[in-house]
C-alpha cells in the first residue's frame, strides 16, 4: 500500500433549505492510499454520496454548503482549488461512477461520444484519436466497439453502467469514486460489474472509494472499511479486521441484520429504530437511541474516535465484540 493519495480532514457539509438545515456530513476525516480500495458503508441518507460529490465539488450549491474541512489530493486542498484547476482534476485524476446508470448518461448523445468527450477534454489529441480510445474503453468493459454510436436508450441497465464505468476510467484516474455502482442492477449483473471493476482496478492501479450499503460488496472488493452513520464515521478498520471483530454497536448491528447461511440463528436481528433526523441531531452519541449498550454518558457527550487495536478506530464509549 502506497502513500496517502486523498486525505479528508474534518469535513462538514450542510444543506440549507427553506425549512431547516440538514447536517449531512459532520466532521469526517478519511485517508485513501494509492491503490487502496476503501468502502464507505452505511444506510441510505447517511451522507455517503455527499462526501463523494464534495470531493469532486459537484454538489449543488445552493442548497449544499461546505461548512469546514479540507480535502487534500496529491497535496493540494481541493476545496481551495480554483474552478479552472478543478476542471483538470475532474474526470482526469478523480472520476466518479454514479448510482443510477439509467439517468447518468445524456439521453441524446451517442454513448461513444460521451466517453470520447471526457478523453478529449483531458488529452491534447484529435477527435478521431479520442474516439478510437473511447472505443477501446468500451471493449475493455465488455461492450463491442460497434455499439459506439448507439444511444443510451438502446442499452440495458447493466450495459449502461458499463458505459458509465468506461467513461469514469477513460482517463485512467488515480482515484475512482464509485457511488453504489451496483445498487440499481440485477443481482447477476451486479456480480459481473463488480468483477469487472475488480479486474480494472487491479490492471490500472486505481484507488477506489466504494460507496455502498452492501456488505457483500465490501467483502469482495475493499481493503479497508469506514462505517458511516448520520454523517459521521463511527468505525474504521481494514476489511479483514472489520469482518473479524466489529466493535461499534452499529457495525455489529449491520452484520447482525445480514442473513448467514452457516448460522444457527433462526431470525435476523434488525437494528431497532431509525437514523436520527439529520435536521435535528442528538447532542450525544448519534447512535445512542438505538444502541443496546447506551449508558447515561452516551446521551450527554459524543464519544471521540479511539484506536482500539492497531489501525482499528471506533467512535464509541463501550467498543468491543458482541457479547
Amino acid at each position: 500500500m502506497g502513500d496517502v493519495l486523498l486525505s479528508i480532514k474534518n469535513l462538514s457539509i450542510e444543506y440549507h433549505t427553506d425549512k431547516a438545515v440538514v447536517y449531512a456530513v459532520n466532521n469526517i476525516s478519511l485517508d485513501v492510499r494509492h491503490g487502496e480500495t476503501i468502502g464507505l458503508v452505511g444506510e441510505t441518507g447517511a451522507g455517503k454520496t455527499t462526501i463523494a460529490k464534495s470531493i469532486l465539488r459537484v454538489l449543488p450549491t445552493p442548497p449544499a454548503v461546505v461548512k469546514s474541512g479540507e480535502i487534500f489530493f496529491d497535496g493540494d486542498d481541493l476545496l481551495k482549488t480554483s474552478e479552472h484547476g478543478m476542471k483538470k482534476i475532474r474526470g482526469n485524476k478523480i472520476a466518479m461512477i454514479f448510482q443510477d446508470p439509467m439517468t447518468a448518461l445524456n439521453p441524446i448523445e451517442r454513448v461513444g461520444s460521451q466517453i470520447a468527450e471526457a478523453i478529449k477534454q483531458h488529452n491534447k489529441i484529435s477527435r478521431a484519436e479520442a474516439e478510437r480510445r473511447a472505443c477501446d474503453m468500451l471493449e475493455m468493459v465488455g461492450i463491442p466497439g460497434g455499439r459506439f454510436s448507439e444511444y443510451p436508450h438502446q442499452f440495458s441497465g447493466g450495459m449502461k453502467q458499463r458505459v458509465v464505468i468506461a467513461m469514469a476510467l477513460a482517463c485512467k484516474p488515480e482515484l475512482l469514486l464509485a457511488d453504489e455502482p451496483t445498487t440499481a442492477l440485477d443481482v447477476t449483473i451486479q456480480a459481473q460489474v463488480l468483477e469487472m471493476m475488480h479486474d480494472l482496478k487491479e490492471r490500472l492501479g486505481t484507488s477506489v472509494v466504494m460507496i455502498t450499503h452492501d456488505l457483500g460488496v465490501v467483502a469482495d472488493l475493499c481493503d479497508s472499511v469506514a462505517v458511516v452513520y448520520a454523517g459521521e464515521i463511527v468505525e474504521q478498520a481494514s476489511a479483514d479486521d472489520m469482518f473479524e471483530s466489529p466493535s461499534h454497536p452499529y457495525t455489529i448491528g449491520l452484520f447482525g441484520s445480514l442473513p448467514q447461511l452457516d448460522s444457527t440463528e433462526r431470525r435476523l436481528k434488525p437494528i431497532k429504530g431509525l437514523m436520527p433526523d439529520p435536521t435535528n441531531l442528538p447532542a450525544g452519541c448519534r447512535f445512542c437511541e438505538r444502541c443496546p449498550r447506551a449508558a447515561g454518558e452516551c446521551a450527554q457527550a459524543a464519544p471521540e474516535m479511539r484506536e482500539t487495536a492497531p489501525g482499528h478506530f471506533v467512535k464509541c464509549f463501550y467498543p468491543g465484540g458482541e457479547e
Binding site: 474526470g91 445524456n106 441524446i108
Partner: peptide, 29 residues
C-alpha cells in the same frame, strides 16, 4: 438537476460546455 449533468461536470467539462451542449440540447426539446 439531472444526473447526467452532474456526470458531465464530473468529466471535467467547462461549465459553458455543460450548459450549452448537454443541458441546452435536452432542455430545448
Amino acid at each position: 438537476r439531472q444526473d447526467y449533468i452532474t456526470t458531465a461536470r464530473a468529466k471535467g467539462l467547462a461549465e459553458g460546455r455543460v450548459l450549452y451542449l448537454h443541458a441546452m440540447k435536452n432542455a430545448i426539446i
